[in-house]
Design a protein around this nucleic acid. Structure first.
Length: 815
RNA sequence: GCGAGGGUGGCGGAAUGGAAGACGCGCUGGACUUAGGAUCCAGUGGGGAAACCCGUGAGGGUUCAAAUCCCUCCCCUCGCACCA
């Protein structure tokens, strides 16, 4: 018998699969399709265990679905633009392109070595002009539709990466990539109007099965809030100050107004204010740009009374306008009505500056109205001190006050979102150039579609400091205006790499077209993605942008579907010693080392077996050895089976029951939320059972081989190489990938004897073998004649007999 | 603070109202062996000589039966957090 040599047989089958193009996806309209997609890797130096886990899970699904008769699309590509390539350029003095393509080669080799069933013919590399050309094309389509615009905006600036970050890339006031504290800086930048799609992005009805938390995160991110805009007239400047509130019911409790230091009224109010100098000082202090985002959040609430008043729209009272650092210009109208009695932030501010607190909502638990509040009462209640609205329930009051304001022309219903427009400008080299031209005569002019792609120049100096390296490339900047033909200059900003990943799954779905981003018919066949798998870290950004992109493309007639990803699985991290694997912690386990030692099948098996897909997986050297032993055991059994000869056939039924049970269990575990760990456990049980049977030789050879072939099939999505090798000993016609998943018979049809638990008053006392077709009374008769159990029952009053079929019997007695 | 998920042997984890701890790791004993870190067999939640008793973060409840359902509380992880 030959020793199990994974390296030899894995490389052999990988070569054969590739030569036969076994995994090449073919557009065949009449076949039912399954699009299985894993988030493509960023092209850093090599893959890590997280990738192995992601791609192995995907591969099991792909192979399982293929064996169930689906036409499979299982593509792979590379997220190849981005900052690290430039960092490498600075550090290692290597061109970003060279660095990226070198890494791609390594990653491709590593993925192939894992034996993942990818359709290599549809590879996408986002830094390839043939790909990013279509980023530019879509940008122009968005531009035509008015979904793209340029504006000066305070941007998040990472002093370490020397670049602008999108809001979403700022986590807790820090740069998402390097962790440096982010500052603000004003820059002219390009935005995409994702806010126009806020409402549609909140609609998840087109999604079948996503983790609930991902949907919640997206909803929070979009942050819809419904309320009311209310006008407060300021006589001294002759204009209405518009505030936004979700609590119109507290309108009678307003004791002051607060505007943001960035509010456009600040200047006008300052001019007429008696405390002009103090305002100036305050504004200077609160709008310092050097203040980091994080500091801004931590800063204590501060404000200044402008001495200017506004008129309450209903009571006509005079209400002073304050400027406060806790009011954000980026949200709502940049001005609020302060109701200290019913809003904790306003309450704190009012305490600090000794402002009046007026209770207008009565807590139903109060016996009487308190003189003083300890904190704001923010819940519902009954309206008081509110004129004609007194006595109304506050929820009802919201509506009534809004209607009243609408009637007198002082307010209207309003909806605001936290979601902001998507800033796609990056002051970097290694990204898609934004196809815009600045002409002295014509202004901002989009590049002609025929001139795409606007290619990145190869010769640039990358210093990592200051502005985009493209600013210094004359060859790149100089161009002709598409409109008037005069000398003009190109935009030097490049696109956020999230643009690249917002539609790559569409490019996969129709291969290598030169004249179109993708073929509509073929994309409509494959899409939406039936199962998407990736890390939770993309819960908001990538997934939201992709949903947005697809909705826009649908509106423009490019595609016929609304949602890109119907089902989503977020796999857990691979951790070691309780922490995420990282160089700094020195706890990294290199997948290639593991493959060298045990082979790809063992690595795959371990990573699938050690934990369910969605939870974190603790790496264990001992654990992978266990999987190595399991495959060796299978290898030995296979060789024994080939040379097997039986003594008798008395255990044939037992084996049939066991293999059917195993197929059923494995099938259900895969179907039910991808419980690969328990599926593997069931196959291990089968192997434990089969080893004994083979030793005893009491099953006939044909039944044994039949069961073994079925077993090889169900194991094959997990460890495809060893299975293919064993399969080849029996069947040379078809690859396992093209075989059918075995069906199973319900074991009830041939199981005659079963073992059930015996309980007395719900406490387990032992177990008993019974014929499968027995009912309660028959089992009870067995019990009263059984040495072990009769003592519990005889001479007792039997209250109840409960039989749970094939599980247990519970005899309830009176003591 | 709000929202979500979780707490089960020495460890990773099974069991979503029906025999708690499947499966794997580790450990103990044995077989084979010059040897074994290979392989095979047996055992392995705790207490007890045993009959039995106890046991799923803590406490209470529903039920013939609770890790699972309900109530109160504790702890851990993740996400959000001046969003008016």
């Amino acid at each position: 018998m030959e020793k199990y040599n994974p390296e030899e047989l894995e490389l052999k089958w990988q070569k054969i699969w590739e030569e036969k193009k076994l995994f090449e996806a073919k557009y065949e309209q009449e076949k039912k399709k399954f699009y299985i997609l894993e988030m493509f890797p960023y092209t850093s130096a090599q893959i890590h265990m997280g990738h192995v886990r992601n791609y192995t899970i995907g591969d099991v699904v792909a192979r399982y679905k293929a064996m169930n008769g689906y036409n499979i699309l299982h593509p792979i590509g590379y997220d190849a633009f981005g900052l690290p390539a430039e960092n490498a350029a600075i550090k290692q003095n290597i061109h970003p392109k060279e660095w990226t393509y070198k890494n791609i080669e390594t990653i491709r080799r590593q993925l192939k070595r894992l034996g993942i069933s990818y359709c290599w013919e549809r590879e996408v590399i986002t830094c390839d002009p043939e790909y990013y050309k279509w980023n530019q094309y879509f940008f122009l389509q968005f531009f035509k539709k008015g979904l793209v615009y340029k504006k000066q905006a305070p941007a998040n600036w990472c002093p370490s990466c020397q670049t602008v970050l999108a809001n979403e890339q700022v986590i807790d006031g820090k740069c998402w990539r390097c962790g440096e504290i982010v500052e603000t800086k004003n820059l002219e930048q390009w935005f995409i109007k994702i806010t126009e799609y806020a409402e549609r992005l909140l609609d998840f009805s087109g999604i079948k099965n996503w983790p609930e938390r991902v949907i919640i995160m997206q909803k929070n991110w979009i942050g819809k809030s419904e309320g009311c805009e209310i006008d407060f007239y300021i006589p001294q400047i002759g204009e209405n100050l518009k505030v936004f509130t979700t609590r119109a019911d507290t309108l009678f409790g307003v004791t002051y107004l607060v505007i943001s230091p960035y509010h456009p009224f600040v200047g006008k109010i300052k001019e007429v204010s008696p405390v002009k100098n103090e305002i100036e000082k305050f504004i200077k202090k609160t709008t310092r740009t050097s203040l980091t985002v994080k500091d801004f959040l931590r800063v204590e609430k501060e404000g200044i009374n402008t001495g200017i008043f506004a008129i309450h729209p209903i009571t006509q009272e005079k209400i002073y306008v304050w400027i406060g650092n806790y009011v954000l210009m980026e949200y709502g109208t940049g001005a609020i009505m302060a109701v200290p009695a019913h809003d904790q932030r306003d309450f704190e501010f009012a305490q600090k500056y000794n402002l009046p607190v007026k209770i207008v909502i009565k807590n139903p638990e109060w016996k009487e109205i308190p003189e003083k509040l300890e904190s704001a009462y923010e819940d519902k209640g009954i309206m008081i001190n509110s004129g004609i609205f007194d006595g109304l329930d506050s929820e009802k009051g919201k509506e009534e006050i809004r209607k009243y304001l609408e009637k007198i022309g002082k307010g209207k219903k309003a909806v605001y979102y936290r979601l902001k427009d998507w800033c796609i400008s990056r002051q970097r080299y290694w990204g898609t150039p934004i196809p815009i031209i600045y002409c002295k005569k014509c202004g901002i002019v989009p590049e002609n579609e025929e001139n795409l792609p606007v290619k990145l120049p190869d010769e640039v100096k990358i210093t990592g400091k200051g502005e985009s390296p493209l600013k210094y490339s004359e060859k790149f900047i100089k161009c002709k205006c598409p409109s008037c033909g005069n000398e003009a200059e190109r935009e030097t900003d490049t696109m956020d790499t999230f643009v690249d990943s917002s539609w790559y799954f569409l490019r996969y779905a129709s291969k290598d077209l030169e004249n179109k981003p993708f073929d509509k018919e073929e994309v409509n066949y494959w899409m939406p993605v039936d199962q998407y798998i990736g890390g939770i870290e993309h819960a908001i950004l990538h997934l939201l942008y992709s949903r947005f992109f697809v909705k826009v493309l649908k509106d423009m007639g490019f595609v016929d579907f609304e949602e890109p990803f119907e089902n989503l699985l977020c796999q857990g991290m691979v951790i070691k010693d309780g922490a995420k694997m990282s160089k700094s912690k020195g706890n990294v386990v290199d997948p290639e080392d593991m493959i060298r030692k045990y082979g790809a099948d063992t690595l795959r098996l371990f990573i699938l077996f050690a934990a369910p897909p969605e939870v974190d997986l603790e790496w264990s050297e001992k654990g992978i050895e266990g999987c190595w032993r399991f495959l060796n055991r299978i290898w030995r059994l296979h060789n024994e089976i080939k040379n097997y000869s039986e003594i008798s056939d008395e255990n044939n039924e037992k084996l049939k029951i066991m293999i059917n049970k195993t197929i059923k269990g494995v099938t259900e575990d895969i179907e039910k939320e991808f419980q690969f760990n328990t599926a593997i456990a069931k196959m291990m049980e089968f192997i434990n059972f089969l080893s004994k049977e083979i030793n005893e030789k009491k099953v006939s050879k044909d039944i044994l081989i039949d069961s073994w072939k079925k077993f090889i099939k169900i194991l094959s999505p997990f460890t495809p190489h060893i299975c293919e090798e064993m399969w080849n000993d029996f069947e040379k016609e078809k690859f396992l990938f093209r075989e059918n998943w075995p069906s199973y018979e319900e074991i009830e049809t041939f199981e005659e004897k079963i073992n059930i638990g015996v309980q007395i008053n719900g406490k387990i006392k032992g177990n008993i073998d019974i014929p499968a077709n027995y009912d309660v009374e028959k089992i009870y008769n067995l019990l009263i004649n059984n040495e072990k159990f009769k003592k519990f029952i005889i001479n007792k009053k039997i209250v109840k007999k409960i039989y749970i079929p094939k599980k247990l019997i519970n005899i309830v007695i009176e003591d």
